[in-house]
Design a protein around this nucleic acid. Sequence first.
DNA 1: ACAAATACTAGAATTATGTTCTAATCGTGT
DNA 2: ACACGATTAGAACATAATTCTAGTATTTGT
Lengths: 199, 199
Amino acid sequence: MSRQIQTSALKSRVIEVALAHFSEVGIARTNVGDILKDANCSVGSLYHHFGNKEGIAEALFIDGVNQFNASLLAALLPRRTASTGISSIVTFCCDWVTDQSQLAAYLLSREIKLSKSAKQELREMDRALSQSLFDWFVPHVESGTLQQLPTAMYVPLICGPTLEYSRMWLSGRSRKSPSDVSPILAQAAWQSVKKSNNS
Amino acid sequence: MSRQIQTSALKSRVIEVALAHFSEVGIARTNVGDILKDANCSVGSLYHHFGNKEGIAEALFIDGVNQFNASLLAALLPRRTASTGISSIVTFCCDWVTDQSQLAAYLLSREIKLSKSAKQELREMDRALSQSLFDWFVPHVESGTLQQLPTAMYVPLICGPTLEYSRMWLSGRSRKSPSDVSPILAQAAWQSVKKSNNS
DNA sequence: ACAAATACTAGAATTATGTTCTAATCGTGT
DNA sequence: ACACGATTAGAACATAATTCTAGTATTTGT
């Protein structure tokens, strides 16, 4: 087996194992020894690839965000109307959280203080995503279907309720999964960004 | 000085110092030695009062949530109409986050995996708050001013965008403070829960 | 094909730091 | 005044993260 794929297999094994441990007891209480054992990894390898425990947490975080962003765009970009687009964003978020609840809980709980470099990387990913979203939105704003708002407001308005509800569900404070209530959330998102005539 | 107030002074000193350190480098990277030093506290006292490092983090968290909840209710309960009430919730959240940004960042980043007992306590506080909110909402739903929705949906719909925007601002991803954009957020919140006739 | 450089693995040794433990001290109620 | 419980103190300890040195495989350049 080539070194490259052997190595990347090790890295994903570590990340996968780490997610399980982090989810169960939190980052602070999982010890790297357990990760080492469960991922069949030596101390040297782990520190070579990840630097330290936080490095594992960061890699997992960045990985997760990448996955999410890519899938989100794949769900949104094909939509041609404003209302189906908004709806697809909300529905996608709900389904993703419901489906990948462990990873979602990890990402949403941000149990981490990211390093300079990780922040940098995430900033860049965020910028790229924002740009793609922006490009999708512009025509609908120009055609008068969506309200004209400060750029930074669209994501919170559309996704805020969904993410907040997801947090509630993930922490056991509500019964129905996000997928179960996605129609309500999609409708609310639409109401808050569509162009309307009355107050 | 009586023991009681001497002790509670020590506890708040520790909590205050802890917030500063946690905010600067995160919980994982602050060492209790530094807190001890800055709060003029002995190892014995600290472990007597807080149990362990997580105990400090939890006390700070619970303290913050208590403060927030109490002030929120104080802002909401006097309002007599649905629209001013919704608006006061959003505006209050925005102002609180803008004003107490360090504490807000700590609460919103949930850099913690809470212990059983802390979860229990927060659950109870959450239940109490939800009940008060519910009591305020009921008349407005019954009078047909607000939409009839599953109980668990109101908070995410109203506060979700605000909290999400706050996270963005706190992590440096947007310029304008929540207070600066609170009118937009209040308007959107109103749109998403008010009873409307058209689609 | 060989050598040199590089990337990676290994695990023993070290260090850092969170936590425990024993003893002393201080209020408070009797 | 006495005794009891709550609190403080900090030295000693234990755990677990990380470093370090050495060794092994893989790729690259000649």
